[in-house]
Simulated assay, not measured.
Amino acid sequence: MKVGNRLKNINEENNFFYLTLALIALLISGALAEVVGSGAIERVLQVTIVITFIVCFASLRFDKNWSRLLKTLALFWVAVIIFKLIFERREMDIAMLALTFCFFFGTFKSTAKQVLFHGEVNTNKVIGSVALFLLLGLMWAIVYLVVIEYSPGAFTGMEAISWGENFSNAAYFSFVTLTTLGYGDISPVTPLAQVVVYLEAIVGVFYMAIVVSSLVSANLQHREQQNG
């Protein structure tokens, strides 16, 4: 009951606060899941993704198009989980990763529409820009996991194990690349992996400039409209 009331309290003035918290919780759970043991890692991640899914739906329900897409993704998600439990086929892992990417991408698109280039810049929008950054890193983490599924030796420092067990490593490498830190403990080996990595690094470099300029532009436009 308390959780339901909390979700009802999400509105257009605080929605990105809850969205960002949900994404941070997903990242933390990915790291903590490894402590539970390999047999339970994917289940822990699936539960956390479902919780994130619910919070994202409540946070972005003001975008009607995304709400409809989210409901469609939920149906496919349940179908894939059921098929995986019955058949245990590798293709189900790929389908799960594809749906997860679509979820992150759709959430990114809906958030960007509400945060960038229009309206007054407030605390909620600033937090929304943080959510956008987290979503970028998560999307690329999913791409790395798909690359590993098809090319197990694509990265040094990441073993060809189940996507659930590799999620934390992929997310770590993704954010290290996105922020252009480049520690070197995980490195791309194959040409495809190298292309994906440097594309993320390019996006990371330009992200801050684009977000700052869009927020400044939106704020100036809002002031001009207020002043007539």
Results as ranks from 00 to 15, higher is better:
V130Y: 05
A131M: 10
A131D: 05
A131G: 12
A131I: 07
A131Q: 05
F133S: 01
L134N: 00
L134H: 01
L134M: 06
L135F: 00
L136E: 00
G137N: 06
G137D: 03
G137Y: 03
L138G: 02
M139R: 06
M139Q: 13
M139G: 06
M139T: 08
M139N: 10
W140P: 04
W140A: 12
W140G: 06
W140K: 14
I142R: 09
I142C: 14
V143S: 07
V143I: 14
V143L: 14
V143N: 09
Y144M: 14
L145E: 12
L145P: 05
L145Q: 13
L145V: 11
V146M: 15
V147G: 02
V147W: 03
V147A: 04
I148N: 08
I148V: 15
E149C: 02
E149A: 12
Y150Q: 11
S151F: 11
P152N: 09
P152G: 10
P152S: 11
P152A: 12
P152R: 09
G153M: 10
A154I: 03
A154C: 06
A154T: 04
T156Y: 03
T156G: 09
T156F: 07
G157I: 06
M158N: 03
M158V: 12
E159S: 12
E159T: 05
I161M: 05
S162D: 14
W163A: 08
W163E: 03
G164F: 06
E165M: 14
E165F: 05
N166M: 12
F167E: 05
F167Y: 14
S168D: 01
N169P: 00
A170N: 03
A170Y: 01
A171M: 13
A171S: 15
A171Y: 10
Y172S: 07
F173Q: 05
S174H: 07
S174K: 06
F175P: 01
V176Y: 02
V176G: 06
V176E: 13
V176F: 04
T177I: 12
T177G: 11
T177W: 04
T177C: 13
T177Q: 13
L178D: 03
L178Q: 11
L178W: 05
T179Q: 15
T179L: 15
T180A: 15
T180P: 05
L181A: 15
L181G: 14
L181M: 15
G182S: 13
G182A: 10
Y183V: 13
Y183F: 15
G184C: 11
G184N: 10
D185L: 03
I186L: 04
I186T: 10
S187F: 00
S187L: 11
S187A: 08
S187T: 12
